[in-house]
Design a protein around this nucleic acid. Sequence first.
DNA 1: ACCTACGCATGACAGTTGTCATGGCTTCAA
DNA 2: TTGAAGCCATGACAACTGTCATGCGTAGGT
Lengths: 201, 201
Amino acid sequence: MIRVLIADDQHLVRGAIAALLNLEDDLNVVAECADGDEVAAALATHPADVALLDIQMLRLDGLQVAEQLRSTHPEVKVLILTTFDRPGYFRQAFEAGASGFLVKDAPPAELIAAIRKIHAGNKVVDPKRAMLSVESKRNPLTEREREILEHAATGAPVSHIAASVHLSTGTVRNHLSNAIGKTNTANRIEAARRAKQMGWL
Amino acid sequence: MIRVLIADDQHLVRGAIAALLNLEDDLNVVAECADGDEVAAALATHPADVALLDIQMLRLDGLQVAEQLRSTHPEVKVLILTTFDRPGYFRQAFEAGASGFLVKDAPPAELIAAIRKIHAGNKVVDPKRAMLSVESKRNPLTEREREILEHAATGAPVSHIAASVHLSTGTVRNHLSNAIGKTNTANRIEAARRAKQMGWL
DNA sequence: ACCTACGCATGACAGTTGTCATGGCTTCAA
DNA sequence: TTGAAGCCATGACAACTGTCATGCGTAGGT
């Protein structure tokens, strides 16, 4: 019997996936978490073999949880789930110690198969995605550029960004200009979009 | 036995919800659709009592399908499902003839209860959301403003927008300026975000 | 027929943004 | 120690953006 933990911020999806998995004779959902920061506590009372972690969670995202589990619960295998298939996620997932990576667009049978494979000690890798990942480069943005780009994504003018980061407007514009260059885009908005898409943000 | 159709572009979520519903003795998932434009065909071969429609679908979204079903299959009750709880969606759902509206964040039991209520001829309304909806105004944007704002959301410069809409740059800027005014924001980016949030886009 | 709302367009002005050159400061590795 | 890389800052220029006044045409409603 494979014990499964599910972490996903959408209650309905979480419950539905649990129902799906419990239909399998060899799978048993032992815990459900609405956010990443509940995972550790859940594992303490409900030990699991495989953790299904959604990337998009409010307080602590799936990648961070995976990173955490690697040291605190190395016996728990991690399968990262995500709604959006961004190139950077794939690499980040495995860097964080995950054993598998699956998009929510995949057929249910694939999820079930993936859980079994992972439990058996194998990695679950989509060849197509793996190829893409090789091409996608590592985050070229500096800490500051990331920080400022995040503010820019909200549409805030330079003056606001500068104020909230405690920098001069000139410096902010320099950082933005750098980010625009590195993302190969034409303005801060596209830069922010691209960076997010690449998983750099 | 209540026959249910599910339309959601994420295969895993679709299948999982189906599994969840099939656990109930009085519910039976008779069809699954990956996009809104498959619903009509599915209903032709698999008549259903209740249609679960996700708003976010690529080719034909849940609201459009609801609108369509109102005339072509008035006997099918519609329950709109959505990931994002935007004020405008709620109103739009009922304007499109839906019998219920549920966020994917709701507990699974609530979905099941909602389906039964709807099948019994009742409307499913979350009181909190209904209150919000009263306050939220109807879309004040004109067709053109919407169209241009959508382009602006991608970060494209005015010149690009103008080219792809076949207008002069001056006109585009006027439309944007109007949209910015109507959304009570400071620039096109914030305007686009606000409009999306309000369900105006 | 008249008013209103919408779409389209220009031109002009001020403000914001992207780029560049340049310089000073720190940290880290060769 | 020297150099590279990052961070911060100025100042200046060109380009882009938001606003406003003004005008014309078309459709809808009264």
